[in-house]
Design a protein around this nucleic acid. Structure first.
Length: 594
DNA sequence: TCATAATCCTAA
DNA sequence: TGAGTTAGGATTATGA
């Protein structure tokens, strides 16, 4: 799951909730013995818990069609299925290389760990972003499979790379070699056709075939298999470049990878120049085109026209014209129009995504808080709602009011705790961190409380920021949300306002609103009276939200007291035979209270 | 106070 | 003993 999906938690419970809308029948480890030693009813609960823990992974495998996709990937790359789970990306490329080399009666050297002499090389160009809110359509031009097509176009491979001495010694004619922008020399395919380009060609034609078959397919199962296949082929093609640049891998060749990126850099610059030189009033166009941004294989163009349809036509014209200036498989495509388009900075933007002139397909956001997993839901939702109001509803006053309401709710402690939970990945063991960080320090503290449930390396750590002495560092104020609930610890709304909400919101509003800061963050709504501890009713609200079954909800509202929660739940289990909605958080709270 | 390094996560 | 790449923004800790 961690490899294929980006989620904010990878616990079986939360993954199941996300994909299956089903949850575990959770049992806290501390009560397992008690349940086993209890009566038939408690053992039943334990058994249901065990069964469900086996059943959920099975359902996930089915739902996400892991088996089909893995079989297809194994076929394409020639590795055993177990490698797809236990090993990385590079074994797949190596396997394809070995298969091809055997066909051609070539051997692959067993290279020793070359040491860290070279290591890094220059990557892609990211064009300077002309930040702003664009209310005219922006056309996007993209290179299709940029790096694979470069490797094919210029025959880049281990077996086509030659040194300057080779060129002299073998008296290679200049028309039979290519010198790459990074200064390497590769022979053309008439002298020695590269293995990598050949692999890539096969992968990409196979993908085209799979996509064509997918279009024809009627049966949902067949469709799923074909979609898995075309995806496997795409991923395989894209990882070939990475393989050549992996200096810790089996067969690094930075001459290839740095040549690929150098061609890519040349091509994006060339594209920008061509667009801006051709689409001018001088040449009979209505406006001068401007490239406002671009990253690696794409350029965003403002042609100056005001309708989506005109922008699409110009985009197609430009893509065709520019494609004609590149050799064989390299192709620039017109893909989509953004309208309106909010460009915040490099790698950060939002806009409505149009592929046809009549209506937009979706709201698309890149890099900003809505797509990041390390922000609390409050920020994520707030930014998303504002973008929705600004881009789709075109209601800026409405967006402003929404922010004010949220800030006011936060400062009055009306915010659900689950919206304030920040999560960050634990990437190494505590000792290996050089500076103190909120999630790392909390993980250590939790380990001291209960080593069994504390987060481990690779886990994501959820935390909230609690009130503390002025000037205390964030890492001193991070706390486990469950611990906060059970001990009635007050959170720090000011932290959430100043360190979580304020900057992301300002970045969204600043291109749109003058005095954004004054209007949004310093109005009367920021002077709400703050109640410092969450009330019982706050906890009850949280608990109710966690419960999905009507029986439990009804029960909770009747009991109405936190201390009675666990008793209520036990009664419910006794009556119904099981806890049908399995509220993990709630159970934990209940157990602690007990 | 401020520049810089560490860290996380994303775009491509 | 196995590991795909670089670019880049944002936040926080750290130390001069």
């Amino acid at each position: 799951m961690q490899r294929d999906y980006k989620l904010s938690s990878y616990s079986l419970n939360s993954v199941s909730a996300h994909f299956l809308s089903e949850q575990k029948e959770d049992v806290h480890h501390s009560i397992i013995s008690d349940l086993q030693n209890g009566n038939a009813e408690t053992r039943r609960r334990l058994a249901v818990y065990c069964l469900k823990d086996a059943y959920l992974p099975q359902r996930l495998l089915d739902k996400l069609m892991f088996i089909y996709n893995y079989v297809e990937m194994a076929r394409v790359t020639g590795v055993p299925i177990s490698f797809l789970l236990s090993r990385g990306q590079s074994i797949k490329v190596l396997s394809q290389l070995l298969r091809k080399a055997k066909q051609k009666n070539l051997v692959i050297p067993n290279v020793k760990q070359a040491g860290s002499d070279q290591g890094t090389y220059e990557g892609a160009t990211v064009l300077e972003a002309r930040a702003g809110f664009y209310e005219k359509p922006i056309a996007t031009l993209d290179f299709a499979s940029l790096y694979p097509s470069i490797m094919m176009a210029y025959n880049l491979c281990y077996c086509s790379l030659v040194t300057p001495e080779d060129v002299r010694r073998l008296n290679l004619p200049p028309e039979s070699v290519n010198k790459t922008p990074s200064g390497e020399t590769f022979v053309k395919s008439n002298l020695q056709k590269g293995i990598l380009p050949e692999i890539l060609e096969e992968l990409l034609t196979a993908r085209k075939r799979a996509k064509a078959d997918l279009k024809e397919a009627k049966d949902p199962l067949e469709k799923a298999v074909l979609d898995g296949r075309q995806l496997a082929l795409k991923i395989s093609a894209n990882s070939v470049y990475g393989f050549t640049g992996a200096t810790v891998g089996q067969l690094p060749c930075l001459e290839i990878s740095s040549s690929v990126t150098s061609y890519g850099r040349q091509m994006i610059e060339h594209t920008k120049k061509l667009v801006e030189d051709k689409f001018l009033t001088l040449n009979g166009y209505e406006h001068n085109a401007e490239v406002i941004y671009g990253d690696t294989d794409s350029v965003m163009v403002q042609f100056g026209v005001s309708s989506v349809e005109e922008a699409m036509n110009l985009g197609r014209e430009a893509a065709e014209y520019i494609s004609g200036t590149f050799i064989k498989p390299i192709k620039l495509e017109f893909e989509k129009v953004y309208y309106p388009y909010l460009l915040i900075s490099k790698k950060r933007y939002a806009g409505l995504f149009w592929t046809k002139p009549d209506n937009f397909d979706k709201m698309d956001t890149k890099g900003i808080e809505t797509v990041r997993r390390d922000n609390c839901l409050l920020v994520k939702n707030l930014v998303n709602d504002c973008l929705h109001k600004i881009l789709i509803d075109r209601d800026i006053p409405g967006a402003v009011q929404h922010v004010k309401n949220a800030i006011s709710d936060l400062l009055m402690n009306r915010m659900d705790l689950s919206l304030l939970v920040i999560t960050k990945g634990l990437t190494k063991t505590g000792d290996d961190y050089e500076v103190k960080a909120a999630h790392v320090e909390l993980a250590e503290r939790m380990r001291k409380r209960d080593a069994a449930t504390a987060p481990n390396v690779g886990d994501r750590v959820p935390y909230v920021i609690i009130k503390a002495a002025k000037g205390a560092k964030a890492y001193e104020r991070s706390e486990d949300p469950i611990y906060v609930l059970e001990n009635n610890i007050p959170i720090d709304p000011q932290y959430y306002l100043e360190n979580q909400i304020s900057k992301p919101i300002l970045r969204i509003f600043e291109p749109i609103l003058k005095n954004a800061s004054k209007e949004l963050l310093h109005g009367s709504h920021t002077r709400s009276i703050s109640i410092s501890t969450p009330s019982n009713s706050g906890i009850m609200k949280f608990a109710k939200k966690q419960l999905t079954c009507i029986g439990c909800k009804a029960l909770l509202s009747r009991v109405g007291q936190v201390a009675a929660m666990e008793i209520a739940l036990s009664a419910h289990i006794a009556r119904e035979g099981r806890l049908s909605c399995t509220a993990k958080q709630l159970l934990k709270v209940g157990i602690y209270l007990k």
